[in-house]
Write a protein that binds this DNA or RNA. Structure first.
Lengths: 121, 121
DNA sequence: GTTATACTGAACCATGTGGTTCAGTATATA
DNA sequence: TATATACTGAACCACATGGTTCAGTATAAC
């Protein structure tokens, strides 16, 4: 049985629910960046960007390290795996359900046809 | 180029960031349910559950229909597809990045060995 | 027609979010 | 040593969230 860390899922889906943060992840997938870099790219104050990075960090999607006065942000290892697993599992439940529905519809249709045939006789 | 509906992603990741709501989706993947059913199963007032269902509905993860006095909730069609696509794409960017890193490390390692060999001579 | 059921909406509460400004501290650079 | 850079933290703002209670309305059951 698959077991999820519910609080981590909470944190990471919440982190992904903001377009700026998704942009930051995209950016970091190209290259590491400082807070200043990111703040510039997303037209935001340093403080504002620091908060976003904090959210991503708490969700373990990003790690940071400070060297001298600059804090470098990079993607977290193993990121998005649990999230992808959750979504994939539920996509499967989803489609199983819709397949079942299809079968019922199919069944009703064929019964309908049979009834029509019976009536014609 | 893949194009995402950013505001829908916002809404659906936010909807997924709550364990109760993820539970509701799981429940609905087994069978349709009324607000009362769900409220009972998650030990919550009707009003509270109504709000959660509202969030899921606004994210188009769930649809509802009222017949008489009971509102039946069911999974939305096409749900989670865009979300899965976003996550998968970024998992790929992620691993591409880590692969690149691996190559660099590999390169450094082989250079180290070469240096060591040169020194020994 | 009365009563029970199922939902709905408004209002409230504490806490979190996305952003800001302002006033720092720490580290480079000239 | 003086100055510029890079970040940090506190405090504030308006608004959203996750929950409640209370007072309704609409529909079903007796």
């Amino acid at each position: 049985m698959v077991q999820y860390n519910e609080t981590r899922l909470d944190a990471s889906f919440a982190a992904l629910s903001d377009a700026t943060r998704r942009g930051v992840l995209e950016q970091l997938s190209r290259a590491d960046a400082s807070i200043t870099d990111l703040a510039g790219k997303f037209h935001m104050t340093l403080t504002g960007m620091k908060k976003h990075v904090g959210v991503l960090e708490r969700a373990a999607l990003v790690t940071t390290e400070k060297a001298g006065r600059v804090r470098t942000c990079r993607l977290g290892m193993r990121a998005l795996e649990e999230e992808a697993a959750w979504i994939e599992r539920h996509r499967q439940l989803w489609s199983a359900r819709f397949d079942a529905l299809d079968k019922i519809v199919e069944h009703l249709k064929s019964k309908e046809k049979a009834d029509a045939r019976r009536k014609r006789r």
